[in-house]
Amino acid sequence: MNNIAEQLSLAYHKIDENCQLLSRQTDTVQLIAVSKTKPLADIRCAFAAGHRHFAENYPQELAEKARDATDLAGLIWHFIGPLQSNKTKLVAEHAHWVHSIDRIKIAQRLSEQRPEQMPALNVLIQINISDEGSKSGIAPATMLQLAEQIAALPQLCLKGLMAIPAPGKPEIEQQQAFAAMQALSASLQQHYPSATELSMGMSDDWPLALRYGATMIRLGTAIFGARDYKKE
């Protein structure tokens, strides 16, 4: 258990070091601990160490953990996985952020199913920046069209973009993907100045993502250790 606190501390330290090298303020970067498949006990350990932002990939797992963690005041849930229309209600009722909006139908359902007493749901548009057929996300050319549709929905707040560049590519291709996302983010902010978040970078590539303007970094294995995917 203590190892989680140590890993969090190490991650914070590395982010701070990289921010200093890039002349960025550390508070412009949010570390999001990806807790999918991990027990609530691990989340409680990270919470006790001062961490507040956690991410889940599966609607049912998010809902179950959120219901069981209502005593953890200030905990913020991020949903980062692909979302089907028959699962939107679980996410609308329990998440604070959704990173993976890739079609208007999902956005509409989230807005309709968001409880009125809750604040607007913060959402990011997922871009398929590497044009992978197996990956969720929209083509960059359709970003502004979807952004306009989302901005009109009453219970959603458009906050920025998310991407998962293709893994295992040469660094020059990774750089190109992150640079393209940085340019898209700048373009989006010209139309929606408050859409400043750029969620990209994971355990293997986050320092490079940070160089290209990432504001949200998603770390799972680096915080909680290897996952047992048999539990999925």
Rank of each mutant, 00 (worst) to 15 (best):
A209H: 06
F224K: 00
E116S: 14
R52I: 12
I150M: 11
E132I: 11
L75K: 07
L208T: 10
T28N: 09
V123M: 10
P167T: 00
E197V: 09
Q84G: 14
M118W: 09
P170N: 11
D27Q: 13
L90T: 07
P170Y: 06
L110F: 01
I32V: 15
E173N: 10
W77M: 09
A55Y: 04
L188D: 06
F54E: 15
S134M: 11
I43L: 03
Y12A: 02
G201A: 08
A46F: 05
G220N: 14
D71A: 09
G137Y: 11
I43G: 08
L219A: 10
L90A: 15
I76H: 12
P39E: 05
H96L: 01
W97T: 11
E61P: 02
Q25G: 08
T221P: 02
A49W: 01
Q113Y: 13
K135W: 03
R67G: 00
A69I: 05
Q182T: 00
M202Q: 13
A63E: 14
S203A: 15
A139R: 14
Y229S: 13
H13D: 15
P193Q: 03
P59K: 05
D228L: 04
P39N: 05
D205L: 07
V91L: 11
A214C: 09
S9I: 01
C45K: 05
A73N: 13
S187D: 14
S130K: 02
A147E: 12
Q189P: 04
P165Y: 07
A166Q: 13
T196K: 15
L188G: 05
G225C: 10
L156P: 03
L184A: 13
R114S: 10
G50I: 13
A222G: 15
Q84S: 11
N2I: 07
Q117S: 11
N3G: 06
D42K: 01
